[in-house]
Design a protein around this nucleic acid. Structure first.
Length: 929
RNA sequence: GGGCUCAUAGCUCAGUUGGUUAGAGCACCGUGUUGAUAACGCGGGGGUCGGUGGUUCGAGUCCACCUGGGCCCA
């Protein structure tokens, strides 16, 4: 071994077992296991038992697949905020939940059962759905845990649990009790062969050829024959026509031909003259749609008037600009009809045949609207009638995409059916909701505006679904179809379902269900039939505040925070608000925080077809949880959140920087025992006080960022601190003293004290962001081991002692460092590019300054510290009033280089057995021996 | 088509009530070090703030319109 190597062994170089590489994929699960073993969640709750309560109420993810990366983002934000709040001393009970019911699961399960040719009755489907949901709860729970989500998994809620279902029914009972629930017709997709209502997701669009007909409606009270011309591709809906819609701001024009007038949209007039074969037609009067709307027309073959209305959705792309309205056969028609007080008229039976209601022409009664290979009988018959009444102006074939039933593959029809609704305007409910929103805090603040828009515009809430996988609407019907809906009965059934689950509704007979309930006298003796509808699943999740917050003693209502994606303004935030207002006349939350959606590197939505992984697990398996979490926390989640390989690569690099910073600091503390070596802050060296000052600023800034839910700012602040304050400045300056001074030198202990305090703060700040790495660093600080029995999460949020924040004390350091940045580095760099020096210790610096210069005093006072700040061998100060301002010149240091400290000194001294070193090193070496 | 919303260097983000040559970290290029080395230091290039027009002595920062993206509807 040569002399240099031997001398190197006399230095106090960093030593630590803290691994440079996280190896997160393998090592994070070990930490999770450790946390579970020590029951970390419970320990945290116990520690903060007497603290103020902060309840973040979990929005339940849907249990139909692996955890999506967007869901991981949501849960990460929740976990980070809770970890922060816990560190601040809040009691943070967190009950995770699962949304179990709903069509996507029922659809998937039904598909599977059909393939297996298994039973498709409600109970069988429900059983399979429950199993399906339960299995994904298991999957998702383990994936959330892997992400580091800390929660009370033993008390998780699931919307399919009997006790939860009972609360759904009690919520429904409160609706009924307040007289909000009513029955009305609404059009739904209907599959005639399957005799069932279909949801959007059960619709398949297929190419289809429909007859397209142009039909004239005679305008009444006109002195000559005038007509409005409509166009439709579903002639069979004409018997249910109740109105004609025009666009209020488009213009309509009178086409004169053969002594008759035909009103159509001006923009379509020319093509219609052609289509309707009105050769020689002339154009007459012109009116805005809004001017037509008081007109009344005569239905072509039914004794009924069809008034003209206006509707915004009328387009000028095809047809006549005059739209046939049948409120029982289309959603737009239905809404327009509602707006204008029309009936939801639908003369169709379950089997898709016209019913004899006294209005339907006799030749149509019993005719089926179902399309078969041979055509559609109803269309044919209606067209025949139109021809016979001379109402048909033209007939063509129209190729388009038309909705088909996923099971029978036949075209579906829109058909109005009895549904249950919640009246939202009764007792000022809607305006009370809108008022309640004013008392809720929103992040970002436009959230209030957005939810208000939904509250104002939504029609009455249709809460019935013709599905099996959900909570049944507990209603009975008599022989006439009159419903028995009573608060007492619903509450009675809720108690029963709490014990037996909602399957009881499907498996028990009416008699068994009603056993023990005292029916109102007018219902006694009637034959009752239970309903088959289920409740809209938004009621399920919408009463979680009731089922969870109200029912668990240690939680509070309303919640302090709801935190979900911005799509929930329309969804969960809204449904929870309605149920909260109806049952308790108060919003169930104090604050709503929303995040955007994960998009790709180009800002476009991520879709399965891109082939890029979308599950959280696929990222965790590659990067580990901390990197994924750091990505989440680096992004401004209020807008769209981009995710790409490039972005993750950047996160990985900043993670490595963090990790390396921790590793270096731990290394410098290898011989530091805080119990014996800690130096009082007041006695710390200037540079160390400066570093503590910057740390105190960091703590303040990061705390402010967390309190404002601007987590990405916290990450940016920490990144900048690690590179700007620590790596390039503080660590760089103190390396010399840490390495070369005697282990117990006061200057060295001073810096170690600061590093110890900084590390302690830094690791606490990182706790909510990268909990695995932060806990690992904390353990190493405590014990030099990977795991500690006193984990980081049980520590408080860092707090700078007031003594750290003495800006007067550190003012000198700020001035010196500024000079280094503005003058010293530049002259050293010049010297380096001239190949005169390599490392900065090879240089000496001369500073000339006029005594009037403001920093003259500082430089003089700190003359002995300057070489260390600048990391050069020596600094010469020359007060020179001939200089107009400060000038810095650097040159190669004179003297001889100490092989131990690498500083250039006037002369070396000899120390056995190491040979010649600088006097300072000689002193250290002799004290070591 | 409608409601809400977003748009600053290659990437992630700062830019306070409109005011001097628009900032940071990362990346990139050059370079030093080899005693933080699958590290670290120093130096440098790079944006006119999505576009157009307006208000103003002056706009990334206010207004209008347009383009593109997102969420929710239709």
């Amino acid at each position: 071994m040569n002399q240099a190597n031997e001398l190197k062994d006399t230095l106090n170089l960093p030593q630590t077992n803290f691994p440079m590489r996280a190896n997160a994929v393998e090592r994070e699960p070990e930490r999770l296991k450790h946390w579970e073993e020590i029951e970390l969640y419970d320990l945290v709750q116990k520690k903060n038992a007497s603290g103020d309560t902060f309840v973040l109420h979990d929005g339940p993810p849907f249990t139909n697949g692996d955890v999506h990366v967007g869901t991981a983002l949501n849960k990460t934000l929740k976990d980070s905020i809770l970890r922060y709040k816990a560190a601040r001393g809040y009691r943070t009970p967190y009950i995770p939940g699962w949304d179990c019911h709903g069509l996507p699961i029922e659809h998937k399960v039904t598909k599977k059962l059909r393939k297996e040719k298994a039973d498709l009755d409600a109970l069988s489907v429900r059983k399979s759905c429950a199993e399906f949901s339960a299995s994904f709860i298991e999957t998702q729970r383990s994936q959330f845990k892997r992400l580091g989500v800390l929660a009370d998994w033993s008390r998780e809620y699931r919307t399919m649990h009997p006790s939860y279902e009972a609360e759904i029914l009690r919520t429904f009972a409160s609706f009924v009790d307040q007289g909000l629930v009513y029955r009305s017709k609404k059009p739904v997709y209907w599959s005639i062969p399957c005799r069932t209502a279909l949801a959007e997701a059960e619709i398949e669009y297929q190419d289809h050829v429909s007859p397209s007909v142009f039909v004239r409606f005679k305008i009444i009270d006109e002195d000559h024959e005038s007509y409005v011309v409509i166009w439709t591709t579903t002639p069979w809906t004409l018997p249910a026509n109740l109105a004609i819609a025009v666009h209020p701001r488009e213009h309509y024009i009178e086409i004169k031909h053969g002594g008759k007038s035909y009103w159509v949209a001006e923009k379509l007039a020319d093509s219609l003259i052609d289509t309707l074969d009105l050769a020689g037609a002339t154009k007459g009067a012109r009116k805005a749609g809004s001017d037509l709307c008081h007109w009344k027309t005569q239905h072509p073959f039914i004794d009924r008037l069809s008034p003209i209305l206006t509707a915004e959705y009328v387009t000028m792309e095809s047809g006549t600009g005059c739209v046939h309205i049948a409120p029982g056969h289309g959603l737009d028609d239905y809404l327009t009809g509602k707006e204008h007080g029309l009936d939801v008229y639908c003369p169709l039976s379950d089997s898709g045949c016209y019913e004899d209601d006294g209005m339907i022409p006799s030749e149509l009664v019993g005719v089926s609207v179902l399309e078969k290979a041979t055509g559609c009988p109803a269309n044919d018959e209606v067209i025949r009638i139109l021809e016979s009444t001379s109402s048909l102006l033209a007939k063509q074939s129209h190729h388009h995409q038309y909705p088909h039933c996923w099971r029978s593959k036949t075209p579906v029809v829109f058909r109005a059916m009895d549904q249950w609704f919640v009246a939202l305007d009764k007792d000022e409910l809607r305006s009370r909701c809108i008022d309640a929103i004013e008392d809720v805090s929103f992040t970002p603040d436009w959230g209030r505006n957005r939810i208000r828009g939904f509250l104002e515009s939504r029609p009455d809430w249709c809460i019935s679904r013709q599905r099996s996988w959900g909570v049944p609407i507990p209603v009975f019907y008599d022989e006439e179809g009159e419903p028995l809906l009573s608060t007492e009965l619903i509450n009675f059934l809720a108690n029963r379902i709490e014990k037996e689950g909602t399957d009881a509704w499907f498996s028990l007979s009416e008699e068994e269900l009603l056993k023990g309930f005292d029916l109102p006298s007018e219902w006694k003796g009637k034959t009752l039939t239970k309903g088959t509808d289920t409740l809209d699943v938004w009621i399920d999740s919408g009463c979680s505040h009731r089922s969870v917050l109200k029912n668990l003693d240690d939680l509070v209502w309303p919640a302090d925070l709801y935190l979900e994606g911005s799509d929930q303004h329309r969804g969960w935030f809204q449904s929870s608000l309605w149920t909260g207002m109806i049952a308790y006349d108060h919003a169930p939350y104090k604050r709503i925080l929303t995040h955007g959606f994960v998009v790709d590197g180009d800002g476009r939505k991520i879709s399965k077809s891109d082939g890029k992984p979308q599950t959280a697990d696929s990222y965790i398996k590659k990067y580990g949880a901390d990197v994924l979490r750091l990505w989440v926390c680096s992004e401004d989640f209020r807008r769209d959140i981009p995710l790409s390989d490039e972005i993750l690569g950047q996160v990985v690099r900043s993670y490595r920087t963090l990790r390396n910073t921790l590793k270096f600091q731990l290394g410098t503390l290898h011989d530091f025992d805080p119990n014996n070596h800690l130096v009082p802050v007041e006695d710390l060296d200037l540079i160390d006080r400066w570093a503590l000052f910057k740390t105190a600023e960091l703590i303040e800034d990061v705390t402010r960022a967390f309190d404002a839910y601007e987590i990405h700012k916290a990450v940016q602040l920490i990144n900048r601190f690690c590179s700007g304050v620590l790596s390039s400045t503080y660590h760089d300056v103190i390396k010399d003293r840490l390495y070369t001074l005697h282990a117990g030198d006061p200057k060295r202990r001073s810096s170690q004290t600061a590093i110890y305090l900084i590390f302690d703060s830094l690791v606490r700040l990182l706790g909510p962001l990268t909990p695995f790495t932060a806990d690992e660093g904390w353990s190493f600080l405590q014990s030099g081991e990977s795991f500690s029995t006193d984990p980081l999460l049980l520590q408080s949020w860092p707090q700078a002692h007031p003594s750290w924040l003495d800006s007067e004390i550190v003012a000198d350091a700020e001035i010196i460092l500024k000079l280094k940045e503005s003058h010293i580095n530049e002259s050293l760099e010049n010297l380096r590019s001239e190949k005169k020096i390599g490392q900065s210790l090879d240089a000496e610096v001369e500073i000339r300054f006029p005594s009037t210069e403001t920093i003259a005093e500082v430089l003089s006072r700190r003359s002995l510290d300057l070489a260390e700040f600048f990391i050069v061998s020596s600094v010469v100060l020359i007060a020179d009033d001939n200089e107009p301002k400060i000038t810095v010149s650097a040159k190669h240091a004179s003297g001889i280089r100490c092989p131990r400290s690498w500083r250039w000194v006037p002369q070396l001294v000899s120390v056995e057995p190491w040979g010649e070193v600088s006097p300072r090193c000689a002193d250290v070496l002799s004290r070591n021996s």
